[in-house]
Amino acid sequence: MEQQAFVEHSPHQKSSLTTRRIMLDVLIALAPAAVMGCIYFGWQALLVLVLTVLSAVLTEIIWLLIRKQTFKEIFKQFDLTSVVTGLLLGMCFGSQTAWYACILAGAFAVGVAKMLFGGTGRNIVNPALAGRIFAFIAFPTIVAGGWLGANFTESAGEVLTGATPLTDFLTNNGVMNTELWQLFFGYGVPGCIGETCKIALLAGYVYLIVRKVIDWKYPLIYIAATGVTTMIIYQSFEVFLPSILSGGLFLGAIFMATDYVTSPKTLWGNVVYFLVLGIITAVLRFATGIEVVSFCIFLMNLVTPLIDRFIRPKPFGYVRPEKEKTGKGPAKEAGK
């Protein structure tokens, strides 16, 4: 009797948990904040988001074409990461950002920060953050020059341009003129497209937890550490809420710092990562007087391999060898 035996490589059991599914979940979680941003800031915000996403995706496709891959292969391995990168990048721009800054930043994010380092999963820093920092250095006046206020009454001619609440907070020594509820809903608050509406970001956070894409602990550690450190710096309990609700802290903590590729692998490694992240964010905000969440996450991304080197994951089936009690050594020998 002849029987054919098939030998297959592991893994033998496959689940539906693919990169494409996770990235789709992240996209769904980002959607509320992006939609609220477009409602608050108008069609210009939508234009910025579309430009960054298109630029990021096209850069990836062109790169793969240069590497002599066919369209069929590209479509097969297309896992939406560049869409997420482009959307995140667009969400940390103001709505008045010039079109060429959007396109160049998208191309830099995917082309340099991701594809040059070997593609998805091999990047050492978050591509979206690299793109934002590139745009911040390349076009300081366009990207960080005055923020357009998110205001429903834009048609009535009341367009607010000015400092974000965080800049206000930092320059006025811990006093903010914006109401807390306003910060929470992002109504009439100047800032980036994706950062103003905290409740939409929190909805995305809940969705990601329910789909088990991110751990619920980590963003909370980051946000709490930033708030507590700010309280220590200003020596007052009142600054906790304003400090965490202003700026891009929620966007960074929920969607950027929790990136799988650039955060540590172990539970304790992550705790260290997010604690240090929170502390340096608060300290650098106080020291520089500008929003530094993106720079801090960028900095900690570079430290991640170091954390992984010292806090290692336990190998499967590992049993810790019992320590020999040093004090009883001579006594044992005497007993023999």
Partner: peptide, 15 residues
């Protein structure tokens, strides 16, 4: 008159 300030800064030098 299209200037990308990134390239005159030190980060651009390394890049």
């Amino acid at each position: 008159d299209f200037k990308i300030g990134f390239f005159t800064s030190s980060a651009g030098a390394f890049f």
